[in-house]
Amino acid sequence: MKLVSAFLLSLFLVSCSLMQPRTARTSSQLSEKEIITITQLIGKEKITKEVYENFYAQYQNNLFGNIAKRKQKHIEIWKNILAKQNITVLENESLEETENLKNQLLSEAIDETLALKTAIKIEELNLNDIYIVRKNSQKSSIREAANGIECGTKNHLFVYYKALREKGEKYTHQYISGKEFKNVVNGSVNSCSIKYD
C-alpha cells in the first residue's frame, strides 16, 4: 500500500510540474523583466550608434566611427540572446523616449569638444544600463554578455576621455561614482574578447 501511495504521489507531482507554464519549468527561459531590460538596452545602443555616426560625419574623428561599429556588435549580442528565445527586435522600432534622447544628445554637441563630452556621458549611461541588466538576471548568458560589454564600454569611456584631455578639456562624472570613473579613466584599455570591444 505504501508503495502504491508513493507511486501515486510521485505521479501527481510530475503531472503538476507538467501543467506549469514552460517558462516556470525551464530556467533558460527569459523572464518578462529580462526581455524588457534587454529590449530597452538594444534601443539605447542603437541611439548611441546613430549619435556617434552623426558625430563622425560632422567631425571626421575616427573614434566616433570606430566605436559606432562596436556599438553594432553590442546590439547583435543582445539581439542574439533574445533570438534564442524566438524574440525578434526590429531596430527601426525605437521608443519615442529614445528618439527624444538621441535628439537631445545631438543638440548638446555643437562642436567636437562637446561631442566628446557627450560621448563620455553616453558611455557612463551605458554602464548604468548594463548594471541594471545584470542586476535583473541570474542567467549565465546574460551576465556573461553584460560583463563583456561592460569591459568594452569602459574602454570606450577611457579613449573618449583621453581624447578630451588631449584637447586640454575636463569632464566631471555624472552617472557613475567618482571612484569608478577615476579607475576607468586613469587606467588603460582593457583586453576584452574581440566580440565585446
Rank of each mutant, 00 (worst) to 15 (best):
V159C: 03
Q104W: 10
K49N: 13
T88V: 09
M19D: 14
F7K: 15
Y175C: 06
F55H: 01
H156F: 06
N66Q: 11
S5L: 14
L106Q: 05
Y52C: 04
I35G: 02
S193L: 15
L106P: 02
S191Y: 15
N54P: 11
I81F: 10
Q29C: 11
R22I: 10
W78S: 05
E108T: 12
V189S: 03
Q138D: 07
R134E: 09
F181D: 00
I120Q: 04
Y52L: 10
E166A: 06
Y196M: 10
E34Y: 02
S28A: 11
N92V: 09
D111C: 01
R70T: 14
E53G: 04
A146D: 01
A68M: 10
R134G: 10
I36R: 08
V185I: 12
L18N: 15
I35Y: 08
S5D: 13
V89I: 08
R134V: 13
Y171F: 00
V185L: 04
E99I: 14
N190V: 13
E53Q: 12
G152C: 00
E76K: 10
W78R: 03
I77F: 11
S31D: 02
E169I: 11
K139R: 07
S5V: 14
S137M: 08
L101C: 08
M1C: 09
S188V: 11
K33H: 12
A24K: 14
D197A: 08
T98Y: 08
A163W: 02
L11F: 04
G43C: 04
Y161W: 11
I194A: 11
S94Q: 14
N66F: 15
N136E: 04
N103Y: 02
A163K: 05
I120Y: 00
V185Y: 09
Q104F: 04
S191H: 12
V14I: 08
M1H: 06
E34A: 02
K44H: 08
K46V: 03
I87H: 01
Y59P: 06
H156V: 03
K139Q: 11
E53W: 05
R165D: 12
F55P: 01
T98K: 15
A83D: 11
A119Y: 03
L125P: 02
G187K: 07
S140M: 07
S5C: 11
F55C: 03
N183K: 10
T23N: 11
F158D: 05
S28F: 15
N190H: 15
I149V: 03
Y161G: 05
E32C: 14
G148Y: 01
T88M: 15
N186R: 12
I77T: 05
K162V: 09
T26L: 15
K2T: 13
K71I: 04
L95P: 14
N92G: 12
T153Y: 00
A24Q: 07
I176Y: 04
Q174W: 05
R165W: 07
E96W: 12
G148H: 01
T26P: 09
Y161I: 04
L30A: 04
Q60H: 15
E124N: 10
N54D: 10
I38L: 05
L8G: 06
K182Q: 15
I75F: 07
E50L: 13
K44Q: 14
